[in-house]
Amino acid sequence: MSDHPTMLRAGTAAPDFTLHSTPDQTVSLSEFRGRPVILAFYPADWSPVCGDQMALYNEVLPEFHKYGAELIGISVDGAWCHAAFSQARHLRFPLLADFEPKGETSRAYGVYRTHDGQSERALFVIDGEGVIRWSYCSPVGINPGADGILEALEAMHPDKAVAR
């Protein structure tokens, strides 16, 4: 456990943002009102391991969708970098570029690392009303997995619990 001291906590309204998902498209958090949203901030594209965090979440996506939840990845990488990474990993969820002004959204959520200019590896589960229901910050070198996200979604919708 290495919770970032400034990380926004459960019960806080999730700050809205509009960021590029591709070089010519943007995504705003407010577009997802009415549905749970999972925000996964991570340090950088191209982490050199099999089954890195984004590849893992890509595989877990059907489980997130059972709760009607949408997943969004956010790092300070630019939209072109995200496009190449997303294509290489066959990602089926948007990666947003917290690129200009650099790290503005990461800062708003209290998970920007000023000393190395990257986002923390931080997770937020936001409910349909735009309120943070769960947040977790993992040590940068440790993939937090998806069990915490599923538990948070389950706590919001106990009727949709995933079997096993």
């Binding site: 877990v60 069990d147 096993r164």
Partner: peptide
Amino acid sequence: RADFVSGVRSGVNGTPTFFINGVRFD
């Protein structure tokens, strides 16, 4: 798929992930 989902619920965060007597070996 059921194995996969059980892994996700157990906190598997890459492959291979090992559990020794039910506790993830980090």
